[in-house]
Design a protein around this nucleic acid. Structure first.
Lengths: 355, 355
DNA sequence: CTGAAAGCGCTTACAG
DNA sequence: CTGAAAGCGCTTACAG
């Protein structure tokens, strides 16, 4: 076998001082086998003479060889990456979704590229572009409100997409969501059972966002079911992130016929509402049921009654749906709905004032 | 120009029904230019006739072309990815670090592969392996305790690594950490100034973990400075995640000469300690200063006095250090220390009981 | 400003 | 079980 000068030089120098990474060709040269055999050994194929495989392992260790999957993926090998887009990793709900994905994907050799869209469609799209350029096999997306039909061509050419927490719009794809309507109905029913008739809802101003719409629908359906009127003065609307939930809460409680109980539609709103209640010193006489659990929920006074979502399960099951398709499943989009759980801790069991 | 049958067929069919992604070659064919020119246009090089560039853009749109960076990175083009390893994304501290990284890297065209090590060295290494196989240009790592010298060969061949929250061991590399010692000293001094003499510390059992060691050192130095003895019966040790901090706290407070104030060494411990204090109904008479802020810290009773770390800054500045090296900076490892801030909210201002 | 050609590091049939 | 060779989709000198 003839070894050209540059290769020869590298092999002789070993891994000492080069700026380049060693290649499979160099591994093969050092091990004294062909590139094919070196590649087979590196990839753990069983059809390799154990002695040669050992030589290859030795060469790999000596050179500090690392396979570059990018090269193989050009020839059709899997890239072993998926792209994940969440609203904001900094929100524990989405961090938990991400961890659920990772815990399913990683043991199967799939790593996650991730990014936060901050619920902006433009950011969602630029993240999708960036991920696809980088060869992800699939996408797990918490979609923004608008429209996901832009993914159609990519789905046709083999990319797989699964939508988390909210379904895609104008696109047939797998989706996995929480049972927002039932969760919200449970919150309302719990308060009604506790004697409340004036139940306020504090929700973010996100028309078109699935979770917001569904939760509002659950609220209205439950009121209807309990023969209670939908009173717009009981519904407080915050900005997208719920950063003014504090003020909105106070306003709601300072109305003429204020609610005796409140429901907050997501975890960031809950923070503001708690602040508002504490500022008014009303946290012990206004009932509160919060959508989403919080780390300190049991430790505030009174402890927070919540509707828990299975954020981790959203990630896990979503990743499973994706991996099934990467391993060959094809068929129309599947829609999974994960149950929510009402956890009574105290704040939701405050009775209405006697009248 | 001769177009072979398969290419021709694809072009004629358009993006309709293929399972393959369109290539730059097809874009070039449709636009009626050479591959070189198509590539130049796609990459936004200015040395392209505007008319041809427009044709190329048209072909790109028509075919739904997406560049495969993997191919280019084989020829030396940048991969536009970095790998991030944190302890656990589910911990808001690390999620914020990750977001800080993303917010610096993404505008510069660099996407993040990420994973949680759960503070296990084996997981750290397998994540590093997985990321390097996938062609990351650099690594941002919250290292586990052991030893990072295994990265030496990769650093020599051009990989860049920056260590976050804790420095690397046995490896010369950039690192950015919080000022744990000063933060802990501030906590102790604050309590001493409030009249406390018996100040307990609840810390995780992580010998060799930089943050734990430094915080314990800060605690001991500050006691020394204030002429207070280091009393082992005032130091409670929890497991790695602080999941038994509840029990450890109660034990500490039920000793013969219990502390009148407590310091918790990280956010997960704080949750357990608060639970322990509430169970004993002592949260209003034992002072508490917590390392790390928490979402509901202002809303518990009494509101939590904390030593805040700049988690976001850790991510941002860490990413900046990394990008500087990717853009050519070389030199010995730099070490940055970010200040911490004591935020007095109530729990840390509880006076010791009169004696 | 444009195009033909080489080559990055792998994987993958194919022949032995 | 092994090896020689082709080729994935780009980028990059190089020649015009």
């Amino acid at each position: 076998m003839w070894i050209g000068p540059p290769l020869y030089a590298r092999v002789v120098r070993g891994a000492e001082e080069s700026a380049r990474r060693p290649t499979i060709r160099e591994v093969a040269a050092v091990a004294g086998v062909s590139v094919s055999t070196a590649a087979r050994a590196v990839n753990g194929k069983t059809t390799v003479d154990p002695e040669l495989a050992a030589k290859v392992r030795g060469a790999v260790a000596m050179l500090g060889y690392r396979k570059q999957r990018a090269a193989g993926s050009l020839r059709g090998a899997r890239s072993g990456t998926v792209g994940v887009i969440v609203d904001d990793v900094t929100n524990p709900f989405f961090a938990t979704v991400l961890r659920g994905i990772e815990n399913v994907a990683r043991p199967r050799g799939v790593m996650t590229l991730s990014g936060s869209s901050d619920d902006r469609s433009a950011d969602e799209r630029s993240l999708v572009d960036a991920f696809l350029e980088r060869g992800v096999e699939g996408l797990l997306i918490v979609p923004t409100g608008t429209d996901q039909s832009y993914l159609q061509p990519d789905l046709r050419s083999g990319t797989v997409a699964v939508f988390l927490d909210r379904p895609a719009k104008f696109l047939d794809a797998d989706a996995i969501v929480s049972d927002n309507v039932t969760g919200m109905r449970a919150a309302v029913s719990h308060l009604v059972a506790g004697g409340h008739r004036r139940i306020g809802l504090i929700i973010a101003d996100r028309p078109g966002i699935f979770t917001a719409d569904e939760r509002q629908r659950g609220y209205e359906e439950a009121l209807h079911e309990h023969q209670l009127a939908i009173d717009p003065t009981l519904i407080g609307v915050t900005d997208l992130r719920g950063s003014d939930a504090d003020a909105v809460t106070r306003q709601l409680l300072e109305g003429d016929e204020p609610p005796t109980a409140l429901i907050t539609a997501h975890n960031l709103i809950t923070l503001g509402t708690l602040r508002g209640l504490q500022a008014l010193e009303r946290e012990r006489d206004v009932a509160l049921v919060a959508f989403d659990d919080l780390a300190l929920a049991e430790l505030v006074k009174p402890p927070l009654t919540v509707v828990k979502q299975d954020a981790y399960g959203l990630g896990r099951r979503g990743a499973e749906l994706l991996l099934e398709r990467l391993e060959g499943f094809s068929g129309p989009g599947r829609h999974l709905v994960l149950p929510t759980t009402l956890v009574a801790r105290g704040s939701g069991e405050i009775p209405p004032p006697p009248r």
